[in-house]
Design a binder for these strands. Sequence first.
DNA 1: GATGAATGAGTTTTCATTCAT
DNA 2: TATGAATGAAAACTCATTCAT
Lengths: 197, 197, 197, 197
Amino acid sequence: MLNKKVLRKQQILQAALEVFGNSGFQTAGISDIARKAKIAEGTLYFYFKNKEDLFFSIPAQRIAEFCEGLELHLQGMNEAPGKLRKIIWFYLYFFKTNPVYARILMLEMSVSKRFSKAITFDRVKAFTDLVLGIIKEGQEEGFIRKDRDACLVRDILLAVLEYRVARWLLNEESCDLLENYSEICDFIFDGIKSKLT
Amino acid sequence: MLNKKVLRKQQILQAALEVFGNSGFQTAGISDIARKAKIAEGTLYFYFKNKEDLFFSIPAQRIAEFCEGLELHLQGMNEAPGKLRKIIWFYLYFFKTNPVYARILMLEMSVSKRFSKAITFDRVKAFTDLVLGIIKEGQEEGFIRKDRDACLVRDILLAVLEYRVARWLLNEESCDLLENYSEICDFIFDGIKSKLT
Amino acid sequence: MLNKKVLRKQQILQAALEVFGNSGFQTAGISDIARKAKIAEGTLYFYFKNKEDLFFSIPAQRIAEFCEGLELHLQGMNEAPGKLRKIIWFYLYFFKTNPVYARILMLEMSVSKRFSKAITFDRVKAFTDLVLGIIKEGQEEGFIRKDRDACLVRDILLAVLEYRVARWLLNEESCDLLENYSEICDFIFDGIKSKLT
Amino acid sequence: MLNKKVLRKQQILQAALEVFGNSGFQTAGISDIARKAKIAEGTLYFYFKNKEDLFFSIPAQRIAEFCEGLELHLQGMNEAPGKLRKIIWFYLYFFKTNPVYARILMLEMSVSKRFSKAITFDRVKAFTDLVLGIIKEGQEEGFIRKDRDACLVRDILLAVLEYRVARWLLNEESCDLLENYSEICDFIFDGIKSKLT
DNA sequence: GATGAATGAGTTTTCATTCAT
DNA sequence: TATGAATGAAAACTCATTCAT
């Protein structure tokens, strides 16, 4: 019973991802989503409060996948610089692999005030906190300059990543998102690594 | 006669700026804009082809103001690093001073594929080209590391600026956009300055 | 369930017939039709694609009625002249009995290029083919002159019928449409009957 | 002065003919007509009361041309049958030569109740009276059967002509309107000529 | 739980007509 | 006479949401 409900929810979310991803929040219609999910329109409202709720429910699962994947990739790494490089790589890799979700998250959600207040946003914050933690870790371990404000470093890192993904999407994914990954890393690290290193 | 037409157009654009800025493109209604501009709805269509045309017509003037202001501030400066610092400052200063416009440009337009194809977008490109030119200038003059890809440097610079403005807007402009301006500069410049300097 | 849908469709079509019949296609408003059908405007679009679709959906049923009625009246008749007389009579009788529909079909549809391309038009063609068939039949049986082009005869027959109905409608149905039915028949038959007869 | 006014009116009427002929009354816009006539929209209302007035003013001149042309062609003819043949030919010839006007008159005006009440309609009636007169003439002269109701004959004649023009227009003028002119004549005349002849 | 017909407010856009200049 | 900017009512159509079945 419960299992069935969860499954049905996934089914709807998957349909919503595809429809919203192709048409955007406003343009996408509930009927399109229902059709793609092979349910009646009314049924949708049994699982989600309304269109916006459905929309903002999409990331939850994806963010979880992102976090799990990232965690796995960070396994066994113990120095901050390496971890950060890994994060940069994984971030780009993940969105390269999930372009439809990328479109929703980057061009629609991250730009919405209401999203900042949605529950899902906590998961986003968890990720940014992870990055912040690693930066601080790096500072304590001596790999990263202590006179850098950790939050600023994190912001710059995220800024660059978001920007690249957004431009990639707006250019219709015509280039390889991972292309100049290493140059980005170099730039960031030159700006934060301790002179000694 | 002609003057009156131009004035009326300004009047409508100003109203559109305010209404779109508060409600967003989709939510804002033509009737709201007409009411604010104190004209009949039909009149609006005498000056603009449709809602989208009106929306995308907003930046033209603002971008012109931005460019003029920037040009003025760059007068008399002849070294790339100084110019770049100035650009960073002016960028943040401009949007701090024009928060409603910032909201439209950053959270709605720069995220839209159709905007990339609008005529106005040329002006945006002119700005990014300016930045790119100064970076290359700096590399030739020896202030900026030649092993950095100029486009990447430009992208990182713009990424950080856009990100900060966007976050500031999403946080309801609660902090000072110019607050850690100098730290941002430091970070960027540490990443690009020639070792010799 | 399915039955209810069909019924509802009938209900809307009936309302559309009346409203379009009184005001014409352009003047009639969707809201008028919805009001007369006692449904919400939106409901209408659940059953018909748009105003034109609704309009062109009106004849289907009426044409079916016409064909059934005609078939019944032709039962047991085996000679072409009698059949043609019957057709002439039934045609006039039918529109005399359905003046509102007549107005729509004659003064709006039969004059529209788009109607010629609508599906319903097939049914109209079926009728004209029936007439043509009977004329040819008459020629083979020797009742009708063989040197007359059957298509021309059909066209003249239809021309006269359409004309009379149209004039009758434009004169506000002030005379009896069946009035000089027999004279019309005589005229037509004098023009086509074999000399021998 | 007066001359200029008349000229300007012609200019507008010509533009109206073309625009209405291509788009139909409802679809055609005053602005299109004004543009084609190279005048301002407001000016149009100095010469015509409103859109409908302009529309119904189109035929006047054309009908005059039609009547003049017909009169000329009837010169020197003194027997009814020949005259009627000539009328049939001229009618088809005229509309073949004026297809845009034909479209307006046949598919839009002759189907409109308001047109029957317009002044211009008198000219139409003058024509039908002419036909009626000739038929009666023919009856008196003994060329045409006296037991035929003259009005009916006239109606049948006009019905066939209108029908052919209308079908021709609806078929996008793809065939030659004068094609089976002589067969039509034969049919009509067989139905009306005195046995003696 | 699931359905899908019904809703109706709300939207953009059009355009004949007017009138100050 | 001529202009063309301004009007504003009206129209068709959409769609998220509800609720009787």
